[in-house]
Design a protein around this nucleic acid. Structure first.
Length: 258
DNA sequence: ATGGCTTCATAGTGAAGA
């Protein structure tokens, strides 16, 4: 079972890339973030033609999340229960016995911003909700744009990022709290190339110079760790014309053929 | 140099992203 996550930065603009990538990679599940479209405009038919069902929670201009799957999606949950939020950042569903949680974590803007406080509150709410979810669903994947670089090796220039969002101690502590739920970073289960990133700034030729961050993650529950056969970042779509600033992260779970 | 790109909402610029 192949599961991927991709912040597409506008599904309107990126639908051709998504369709191309689905055709080539044929993942069982693809979690999308930053749709930036209302549900009424979600491209249900085009994805169905490509062989994918979808559940989604979108809004105009900002945010928006979806889970695409080649198989049935059940037990769909939108948002974090009990956490009032106008921003559409969470959707969860079960596919082939695996609970898939797709999240677009808040950016935070800057450490002195109200949005940073919102980010920390959101992270607390997510963690408390998942404490129950990981108890209920043994096979769980938390996929998405976390907007957190967990360690210095996930940052192109750690010194330049001191005192900034994405790397601050409270954010990294929140990431560790997710690990403390028994979740494991699939990407770090393997030796990976140095300077592996999932996002590059559009400015300053960030991608060409590999000035990036690893902020998109796939955390898997302990019972799934033994199934993790491979995990990689697919930089290919970032080389295409008019790309998203993020690129897909993919995990292959064995036994395959499911 | 708080810039640089990209998207969206809007109809000239401004917010937001990371």
């Amino acid at each position: 079972m192949k599961i991927a996550t991709w912040n597409v930065n506008s599904l309107n603009v990126r639908l051709p890339h998504v369709l191309d990538w689905l055709a080539t990679e044929q993942p069982d599940v693809l979690c999308l973030q930053e749709l930036k479209i209302e549900d009424s405009k979600f491209p249900v038919a085009q994805l169905a033609e490509a062989g994918y069902q979808a559940v989604f929670s979108g809004q105009k201009t900002y945010n928006g999340v979806a889970i695409l799957a080649r198989h049935d999606l059940s037990d769909v949950q939108v948002g974090i229960p009990g956490f009032e939020d106008e921003q559409k950042r969470v959707i969860a569903a079960t596919v082939q016995g695996v609970r898939v949680v797709c999240g677009y974590f808040p950016n935070g803007q800057s450490l002195d911003s109200d949005k940073y406080q919102y980010k920390l509150r959101w992270l607390t709410a997510l963690t408390e909700w998942l404490r129950g979810e990981t108890g209920h669903w043994s096979r769980l994947v938390l996929a998405g744009d976390y907007n957190i670089a967990p360690e210095d090796r996930d940052v192109h220039d750690p010194a330049a990022w001191v005192g900034q969002i994405l790397v601050s101690e409270p954010e990294r502590a929140a990431f560790k709290e997710l690990l403390n739920l028994g979740l494991v970073d699939a990407f770090r289960q393997f030796n990976q190339p140095e300077a592996s990133f999932s996002w590059w700034d559009y400015r300053q030729a960030g991608f060409r110079r590999n000035l990036g961050m690893r902020i998109d993650h796939l955390l898997v529950s302990k019972p799934l760790v033994d199934w993790v056969a491979k995990c990689w970042i697919d930089k290919e779509p970032r080389t295409w014309e008019r790309p998203s600033d993020h690129t897909p992260v993919v995990v292959q779970l064995a036994p395959c053929g499911c």
